[in-house]
Design a protein around this nucleic acid. Structure first.
Length: 655
RNA sequence: GCGCCCGUAGCUCAGCCGGAUAGAGCAGCUGGCUUCGAACCAGCAGGCCGGGGGUUCGAAUCCCUCCGGGCGCGCCA
């Protein structure tokens, strides 16, 4: 509601200012900190003052006088040195909230948005860094969808890379396992396969460090896997497939699902790279070096991605895309994949359904040959968000530059690196995990997670810990409830705590992970917000227990009654905050910051908790007021539930 | 050397498309459960917004510069 009124007002002011003063800039309102200044403020008179060479106050007066009465607005006031403060008509505003709004016509540009996230190497269990990626990506997807965008979720599986090769080498050379034996392990419920590989990966990494000559094993395995034939390739498929499924299961615990899983193996075997290479070569985006240190390679000139003044010593050489031995680098494959996402490659995968989630959603995986079932159309996006940590920004720049060099300016512009900083471990956390830190590491604010060292917090371990802790609370508060139910509630609280924890930080700060903070259920946390919803619901449960039905708000509360009740500033501010959900979500999309939605949920919960505490609703003797309070509580509850849904945080029945 | 990120209360962080008195949470102290649930609420205390310069009627916010910390910059993925 707030969002729509704001847009309407922006339209009215924009039209007036353009006609009267030739003002062509966007009309941007601010929301004053002090409630006494109204709901929206417009500082445009300050900007006009310069060109008009008149005092801002006089201009503001003039605008207010000339623009006249506006529907839904109670008053326009000039304040301070020249602000135009806007006060909504409270009764009317609330009334339209009760009546509900006709559905918004989607003013959003059509076309599909692709969000790629998670992208975990399928060679070991997921850790908390991966969780940040997946939660950020999934929440952004939910925000986009809540605001009417069409979105496709991709999770790229690098099933032929070095990391998989390393684990395969470990199985073959360190453990002497056959593909059949490994397959048996993946089917054995007693073996936690992704955890097993976590340790195994650390082992083979240590082995390489101690015996560098054995690195040849990796190269051999890599080549075998890329060819896709033989024992080693078979082993790689078994390992990566099992781990991929483990990752899907881990993410499902947090409510995270995907639409399609494009795999590296298909990118190779369906010759995506060959098609991309032809394009790049034809259009001169890469060139063959005949001398210098990159002799024999196909190279993207530095000028393409490093800016105009890229005269530095190192930058002049450009970025190798095809090695002198004829193989393509990682970034080259990435360019091909990015082209496919926009439908620019002239090639497509085949697909087959991989699995159906318990909620009925189906995820598809790329395949070399056509499947039995017709697949939905994937790819062909108009905008692509790559959720990848900020350490990859250099490579992401090169991918975008590749598109630009091919003449796909618009697509390069719509290739968005949705970057975030890493999740590291606080020194205390690393110590708790049993890792020895040297003096230097202990001095630091945080220690980097390292899969090769096996240093990190596994995602499932963290979720388990959260459930265990939540369960203690649930059991102590609701000892009579059946154990399965208690556990289910505890799991919902755990998900709430974890997702909120990952979302409360903005994307560009490093999270120094600490169990004490992550396991907190008090203060600015997911459970705090969930608790507000549970309390709100309990009012209505109590109402029903007393044999009363929910009043017919629309019949009992006319604009006059609403106006009377909303003279209370507390009620008005709560209602206003609750009505800002869509405005907040749009803002979160515009700046690409899911944290805004999380912060909003917390603020609304906080406002509600205050209200809840101060105003016993069911005990209210005055009928109009009681009905109003019920409506307000109901409206806030609905908005909170919706926001939690967007954050992927479940609302438990009780807690 | 070049590029990106961070520096705001004891700690962890919001606020940064310039705007009116800089906000939360945690920790600390004080008070509040016979009421719709205390995973809560209220209050107190806590700030040269890293330093300096500039732009502006106005700077935590934009520009420059310096300092401190982190991450990148391979024919690795």
């Amino acid at each position: 509601m707030f969002h729509r009124l704001e847009e309407t007002l922006a339209g009215i002011f924009s039209k007036h200012l353009e006609k009267r003063y030739g003002w062509r800039n966007a009309v941007v309102f601010e929301q004053p900190r002090q409630p006494e200044f109204g709901e929206l403020a417009l500082p445009v008179a300050f900007q006009l003052a310069r060109t008009l060479r008149r005092p801002p106050r006089a201009i503001a007066d003039e605008i207010v006088r000339e623009i006249g009465a506006i529907e839904g607005v109670a008053a326009l006031e000039v304040a301070g040195a020249g602000y135009i403060n806007i006060r909504f008509d409270r009764g009317r505003y609330a009334r339209s909230l009760i009546e509900g709004l006709p559905p918004e016509e989607c003013a959003v540009a059509d076309g599909k948005i692709i969000v790629e996230h998670t992208n975990i190497n399928p060679n070991k269990a997921a850790h908390i860094g991966h969780l940040r990626n997946a939660v950020l990506g999934d929440t952004f997807v939910r925000i986009l969808r809540a605001r009417g965008r069409r979105v496709e979720v991709q999770n790229y599986i690098d099933n032929t890379g070095v990391q998989v090769a390393d684990v395969v080498v470990a199985f073959e050379r360190l453990l002497g396992k056959t593909p059949e034996e490994v397959a048996a392990m993946t089917a054995d419920p007693a073996v936690r396969f992704d955890y097993f590989c976590w340790d195994l990966y650390a082992r083979i990494s240590a082995h390489y460090r101690e015996h560098p000559e054995t690195l040849a094993w990796r190269q051999q395995a890599l080549e075998a896997i890329e060819r896709g034939e033989g024992e080693t390739a078979r082993m790689a498929a078994i390992v990566s497939d099992a781990i991929m499924r483990a990752h899907l299961a881990t993410m499902w615990r947090l409510g995270i699902v995907y639409d399609v899983l494009p795999r590296e193996s298909e990118i190779l075997h369906l010759k995506f790279w060959a098609a991309a290479f032809e394009l790049l070569r034809e259009r001169g985006a890469i060139r063959y070096e005949t001398e210098g240190k990159n002799a024999g390679c196909w190279v993207m000139p530095a000028a393409a991605f490093a800016g105009d003044d890229a005269g530095g010593e190192g930058g002049e050489d450009g970025k190798v895309i095809v090695r002198s031995n004829g193989t393509v680098t990682y970034v080259g494959k990435d360019i091909a994949y990015q082209l496919w996402k926009f439908g620019l490659l002239g090639k497509d995968f085949h697909y087959r359904p991989l699995l159906t989630y318990p909620n009925g959603h189906r995820v598809w995986v790329s395949s070399e040959a056509p499947g039995d079932e017709p697949a939905p159309e994937f790819g062909r996006g108009s905008r692509v968000y790559n959720v990848i940590d900020s350490r990859q920004s250099y490579l992401q720049d090169i991918v975008a530059a590749g598109l630009r060099a091919l003449g796909f300016e618009k697509e390069a512009e719509n290739s968005i690196h949705f970057a975030y900083e890493m999740v590291a471990l606080s020194p205390r956390c690393a110590a708790e995990l049993g890792f020895e830190l040297d003096a230097e590491e202990r001095r630091r604010a945080y220690v980097e997670v390292s899969g090769r060292k096996g240093l990190g917090v596994k995602a499932d371990d963290l979720v388990d810990k959260l459930i265990e802790k939540a369960l203690e609370e649930v059991v102590s508060r609701h000892p009579q409830e059946p154990p399965e139910k208690q556990r289910d509630i505890a799991a919902q609280i755990a998900v709430g705590a974890l997702r909120y924890f990952m979302l409360k930080y903005t994307r560009n700060v490093v999270i120094a992970f600490d169990f004490q903070e992550a396991l907190s259920f008090e203060g600015e946390t997911g459970p705090y917000v969930q608790y507000a919803v549970v309390r709100a619901r309990s009012i209505f449960r109590k109402l029903a227990e007393r044999g009363e039905s929910v009043p017919d708000y629309a019949a009992e509360l006319d604009a006059g009654a609403l106006e009377r009740q909303l003279r209370s500033e507390d009620f008005w501010q709560l209602l206003l905050t609750a009505s800002k959900t869509d405005a907040v979500l749009e803002r979160a999309i515009a700046v690409g910051e899911p944290a805004h939605a999380a912060k909003y949920a917390f603020q609304l919960a906080q406002a509600f908790n205050n209200f809840y505490h101060e105003h016993p609703i069911l005990a209210e003797p005055d009928r109009e007021r009681r009905t109003f309070l019920l409506w307000l509580a109901d409206y806030v509850r609905a908005q909170l539930e919706r926001t939690l849904g967007v954050l992927g945080i479940p609302c438990p029945e009780y807690m």
